[in-house]
Amino acid sequence: MSETWEWLLTSPLSMLLLTLLAYRVGRQVQTWTGGHALAQPVLVAILLVAPVLTFLDIDYTDYRAGAELIAFMLGPATVALAIPLHRQAHRLRGFVVPMLVAVLLGAAVSITSAVLLVQVLGGGDVLARTTAPKAATAPVAIALAESAGGISALAAVLAILAGILGAVAGPAVLTVLRVRDHRARGLAQGAVSHGIGASRMLADHETEGAFAGLSMGLTALAMSILLPLLLAVLL
């Protein structure tokens, strides 16, 4: 019996099933609440999976190995965001230059504000280098933080946290600020909350989701270019 229980705790299939079930519950909660902002499936899944791993004393490394298939599928899922963008390609007319300028400025402000906030709160250089790429999608944030001398694991947590917070609060903030252009809303959301925010915008409006996906990719590129330059100046 103990051998069976140990196998269940370490089996990749168990970790994969746990993750999928938690996300399915998150989708159901989202449906029950009528799509409430706080009922983000990713957030609900995290709140379900984390206590289970803690209670069963499952190491994160074992969990990640079991859920590797889902992590692998993030790549194709990100590429699939190009499909709604292709359908909305006609909306790029007259918007390319303002979009590129906005993405570059947004990336610069994100990096600078993160570093300055850490410094104001008394954090060290390592924490600043870890926090700076938070607006990039998680794989890019991990790589950038590691190359900049930060903590890659913490960078992943911060990137996911930024994505969840953006998906929960982003659309409401844009509405309060009276940003009504669907392209601008998607661009802003994708720049700060990457894939999680893009999926939220895609559920709300196809144009917003398409531009959020485009913004996510462009922001990751802008971060890769600007991060070493701005860190050299700020630190």
Rank of each mutant, 00 (worst) to 15 (best):
residue 144 L to W: 12
residue 143 A to G: 10
residue 102 A to L: 06
residue 102 A to N: 07
residue 158 L to I: 12
residue 155 A to D: 10
residue 115 V to E: 00
residue 169 A to Y: 11
residue 119 Q to Y: 10
residue 161 L to W: 15
residue 140 V to F: 12
residue 128 A to R: 03
residue 169 A to I: 05
residue 106 G to E: 00
residue 179 V to Q: 15
residue 124 G to C: 03
residue 130 T to S: 09
residue 170 G to Q: 06
residue 110 S to L: 01
residue 112 T to K: 02
residue 150 G to F: 10
residue 160 I to C: 09
residue 158 L to D: 14
residue 118 V to K: 02
residue 153 A to V: 12
residue 120 V to E: 15
residue 165 L to D: 15
residue 110 S to H: 05
residue 126 V to M: 10
residue 165 L to H: 08
residue 105 L to G: 15
residue 125 D to Q: 13
residue 164 I to S: 08
residue 145 A to Y: 07
residue 168 V to M: 11
residue 159 A to R: 05
residue 180 R to E: 13
residue 174 L to W: 13
residue 102 A to E: 04
residue 174 L to D: 02
residue 169 A to P: 01
residue 108 A to W: 05
residue 125 D to K: 04
residue 132 A to H: 06
residue 173 V to F: 11
residue 162 A to R: 01
residue 126 V to S: 10
residue 167 A to S: 13
residue 180 R to K: 14
residue 128 A to I: 01
residue 135 A to M: 12
residue 173 V to R: 06
residue 176 V to S: 12
residue 170 G to K: 04
residue 140 V to E: 03
residue 109 V to R: 01
residue 113 S to L: 15
residue 158 L to V: 13
residue 167 A to T: 05
residue 128 A to V: 01
residue 174 L to Y: 14
residue 144 L to R: 03
residue 146 E to S: 14
residue 159 A to W: 00
residue 110 S to E: 08
residue 151 I to S: 15
residue 138 A to H: 03
residue 150 G to H: 04
residue 136 A to N: 02
residue 108 A to Y: 08
residue 105 L to F: 09
residue 162 A to Y: 05
residue 159 A to F: 07
residue 102 A to V: 07
residue 132 A to F: 08
residue 105 L to H: 11
residue 148 A to V: 01
residue 153 A to H: 13
residue 152 S to F: 12
residue 138 A to R: 00
residue 159 A to P: 03
residue 149 G to S: 10
residue 176 V to R: 13
residue 134 K to G: 11
residue 149 G to P: 06
residue 170 G to R: 02
residue 135 A to I: 04
residue 178 R to A: 13
residue 175 T to P: 12
residue 121 L to R: 08
residue 148 A to W: 03
residue 105 L to Q: 06
residue 162 A to M: 12
residue 171 P to A: 14
residue 123 G to D: 12
residue 135 A to F: 03
residue 135 A to H: 14
residue 117 L to M: 12
residue 143 A to T: 04
residue 136 A to M: 07
residue 167 A to V: 01
residue 170 G to W: 06
residue 103 V to A: 03
residue 163 G to Y: 04
residue 125 D to A: 15
residue 144 L to I: 06
residue 140 V to R: 00
residue 174 L to A: 11
residue 116 L to M: 07
